[in-house]
Structure formats: structure tokens, C-alpha cells
């Protein structure tokens, strides 16, 4: 049985939340063993009462969905433990978010590979993982004081959406990455984050804004992105 609770070392998360996360992680593990696992078997595995599970989750599917939501929570917990996080640069914050998510995904790689597309990308309404991801991105950009004035105009809903799509692109790359410890994915994410920072910290954005806006609002892409 894989031990994944290292994540909670020294954290301040409350007990209920910790339990919820533990249940969803165990659920992810059970899912890999048997996609039709029962709540009872999960409770047994966790050595708790199935009643405790039902108190927190209405059904099995919610447990499996919550796995994704909780990755963002774990990430948030981690950044609280980093000294000087607030003076991290844009590229550092962006790569931290994405690298941490992939570090976490790696812990349940099989589950993630089996379900990410189905659960997160093709869910009927927007999966809360997506909205929380965008929310984190939003905070990263809004808390950054070094953005060039023009570039802040680029930051809007469509932009968050496009970053989420980029994340999905990384996901695709990562899912096929056979390099040692995903170092190719890591390098890609780093190069990308540096690039984004370059665009947002310099006046490239200022200069290119007019052009960018024009292209954006007059291309078929915008129709697609507004879905």
C-alpha cells in the first residue's frame, strides 16, 4: 500500500478536510485496482466506517472527482510552507503551480491517466478542478507587481482559459513523457513559464497589445474560445 500522507506533514489542515482528501486518494487507488469498487471496500481499506464516508460524499463519483479538486488544496497548503513565496517571480509561481500538480498527479499516475480526460475535460459542466486552477492563475497574475501596464489588459477570462488549455497540453506531454523523472516535462514547463514571464514583464505586451487584440477578436479562434 502506497503511503501518500507525507503531503500533510506539518500542515494545518483540519481533520475533516484531511480525511476527505485521504478518502479521495484511497478511492483513486481502489479505482485502479477495480473501477467498480464499492464504498464498503473503500471503508474497509481505510479502516473506517462506510457511514463516515457517506457523511462526506454523496456517492462514489464525487469521491473520484474530489481527488482532482483536492490537488489544488494540497498545492495551496504547500505554498504556505514555502518561505518567501510572496516574492517569487511570475515564472516561479507559474511553474510551482504546474510542477506541483504534476508531482501530485505522479503519486496516482495510473488513476490520473485513466480518468483525467473523462472526468475533468469531458465533464458536463466545468469541473471544479478547472475553475480552481483558473482561480489560482488569477491570483498569481493579480498579486504580481512587475507586470507591464499593457500586459495586464491581456489578463482576462479567455486568457485563463488559454492557460488551462496549455496545462492540458502539458498533461498530454507528461502522459507520454518517458524521460527520467519527467525531466523533459519539467524543462518544457520551465521554458514555457520563462517565456510567459518575459512577455508579461517587458513591454512586448504593451507593444503587441493592439495587434494581439485585433487578431484575437477578429479570428475564428475567439468564437471557438467563447464556446
Amino acid at each position: 500500500m502506497k503511503e501518500t500522507n507525507y503531503i500533510f506533514q506539518g500542515t494545518t489542515m483540519d481533520k475533516e478536510l484531511t480525511l476527505k482528501i485521504r478518502i479521495s486518494e484511497a478511492g483513486a487507488e481502489r479505482y485502479v485496482e477495480n473501477p467498480r469498487f464499492t464504498i464498503q471496500s473503500l471503508a474497509k481499506k481505510l479502516k473506517i466506517d462506510s457511514k463516515d464516508i457517506f457523511e462526506l460524499f454523496p456517492n462514489r463519483s464525487e469521491i473520484l472527482n474530489y481527488y482532482y479538486d483536492s490537488r489544488i488544496l494540497v498545492y495551496k497548503e504547500q505554498i504556505q510552507m514555502i518561505d518567501n513565496y510572496s516574492d517569487y517571480s511570475l515564472s516561479e509561481k507559474l511553474s510551482l503551480l504546474i510542477l506541483t500538480l504534476f508531482d501530485l498527479f505522479h503519486e496516482h499516475r495510473e488513476y490520473v491517466l485513466m480518468t483525467y480526460k473523462k472526468k475533468v475535460l469531458c465533464s458536463m459542466s466545468m469541473h471544479s478542478f478547472e475553475s480552481q486552477f483558473k482561480n489560482e492563475i488569477k491570483q498569481i497574475f493579480h498579486s504580481d507587481r512587475n507586470l507591464s501596464s499593457g500586459s495586464s489588459l491581456l489578463i482576462n477570462r479567455a486568457f485563463y482559459y488559454s492557460l488551462f488549455q496549455t496545462f492540458n497540453g502539458f498533461f498530454y506531454f507528461w502522459s507520454r513523457d518517458t524521460s527520467n523523472n519527467y525531466e523533459n516535462s519539467t524543462a518544457l514547463i520551465d521554458k514555457w513559464a520563462s517565456f510567459v514571464q518575459e512577455v508579461f514583464y517587458t513591454r512586448i505586451a504593451d507593444k503587441g497589445l493592439d495587434l494581439g487584440k485585433f487578431l484575437f477578436y477578429h479570428s475564428p479562434l475567439s468564437q471557438f474560445i467563447k464556446r
Binding site: Y6, Q9, M81, I82, D83, N84, Y88, S89, S91, E92, K93, S95, L96, L99, T100, D103, N181, Y182, T186, D190, A193, S194
Partner: peptide, 29 residues
């Protein structure tokens, strides 16, 4: 170009199994 602080952390985590703050008494990022 340097390897940024997030990357260093993540690389250490992947290579050595835990984040620097867990492995070392102190680690200058």
C-alpha cells in the same frame, strides 16, 4: 539562465524523494 526556486524544489523532490525543507536542516533556495 538560472534554475528557478520552484524548479529546484521540484527537482529535489523528484530526485531525492522529498522537498528540500524536509531533507535538510536548511537549504538556501
Amino acid at each position: 539562465p538560472p534554475i528557478n526556486r520552484s524548479l529546484v524544489r521540484s527537482i529535489i523532490r523528484r530526485e531525492l524523494g522529498a522537498y528540500p525543507e524536509q531533507l535538510f536542516a536548511s537549504f538556501n533556495p
